[in-house]
Design a binder for these strands. Structure first.
Lengths: 209, 209
DNA sequence: AGCACTCTAGACAGACCTGTCTGCTAATCT
DNA sequence: AGATTAGCAGACAGGTCTGTCTAGAGTGCT
């Protein structure tokens, strides 16, 4: 096979992959599965139910995903993409450009999202609870998300001239995880003052709200 | 049935229940199931495997537990009891009786427990991830544990003359949950300074270690 | 001796699981 | 025109799941 042929066939394969990823049936499957996985857990939801609710033939499902695990991985990756988009929107928000204010906005958003009655905790933590093997692709994607979030905190803190960005970022990660757990498992009606107090003690800044 | 007969039959039933709870077979089942549930998740472990590893007949299992859910509930209740015992041991520890020091001890212990390679996060959070219905008995037991821990923090803080025990206890609960998640999912080798810093910022006290 | 209880071994039913395969239609690309 | 691809419907295999049931052995209480 000549280099030119190899290049063109690689391009063709890439185009085919793009087309496949954009397929409506595939999107329907991923959306249905995401909702079900999040609401009920991965092991609790079978393929049959997903394809029935997504109105997709079984062969079509296995055409797009080699196995259920691949779907779970796609679900986790999708959540990762989603959270990155939200974060970017928050950082690009018109404002005074104060990175500390951006941090507070992120946490305020999280408490609001957590107040939704359909909120069922952090999807990454929940999936990790069902996937014990840290080498599993799903777990690797989850680890990527965590590294990304920690780094995001660190960058914002460094921009805000925090005296110890590494340690403070670590604390904020603890708070983030604690927040999702609490919103899921506890009555979070009185969470607001607790979070404001926490941010004040950790960052030395009070949210404006 | 005379009152006396009723009383004696009630006592007999109670004694039988005690005997049943103390049965070696039942204990073996619960121990095996606890280890497996924690290590691999509830839905991922079947009854067949539990009874095989516990070396118990299936009829014996269903003699002690009406259904798998009852076993899961027993598992969660057992974890609750376990954590209470640990906490009581910590509080009864001979020392200066400083409740703030007791708080720090609790968190130091948690980081040490979380460093175990077999650590797989908080069993309550992991089980809750697989049980979406908040009215489920298992979820109720989990809620009891969380209320207990929050109250324990609150009592210790009140004894330490914390200016806002309710809010501080809420923050410590956030830290606790964040801690377990982090020990499970992240490289927690550099966790110690982060936690010390967090406790210092939240409590205004540095751990002595 | 008689009875109740605990336990073992394992068959069994009925449901559900993942994943494969056949056969068909229709669109799209070369 | 021919080939590839996406999609649908649904049967099927082989396994695992929970939970029930039969049949019998041992043990302790009365």
């Amino acid at each position: 096979m000549s280099p030119a042929t190899a290049a063109s066939s690689a391009a063709a394969a890439e185009a085919a992959a793009d087309r496949r990823a954009a397929s409506p049936a595939r999107r329907r499957v991923l959306e249905t599965a995401s909702a079900l996985f999040y609401a009920e857990g991965v092991h609790a939801v079978g393929i049959d139910r997903i394809i029935a609710e997504a109105k997709v033939a079984k062969a079509t499902f296995y055409h797009h995903f080699p196995a259920k695990d691949a779907l779970v991985d796609a679900y986790v990756a999708e959540q990762f993409r989603f959270q990155r988009e939200i974060a970017e929107a928050f950082l690009a928000e018109p404002g005074d450009g104060d990175p500390r204010a951006a941090l507070v906005r992120v946490f305020t958003y999280m408490t609001e999202a957590g107040a939704d009655p359909a909120f069922r905790g952090c999807p990454f933590v929940n999936v990790a609870a069902e996937y014990p093997d840290p080498e599993h692709p799903v777990r690797r994607t989850i680890a990527e998300h965590r590294a990304w979030f920690l780094d995001l905190m660190r960058r914002l803190l460094a921009a805000a001239d925090d005296p110890a960005p590494d340690r403070t970022a670590g604390i904020l990660l603890l708070l983030r995880d604690g927040l999702t757990v609490r919103c899921y498992l506890d009555d979070a009606s009185d969470l607001r003052p607790v979070l404001e107090d926490a941010l004040e003690r950790v960052l030395g800044v009070a949210p404006e709200s």
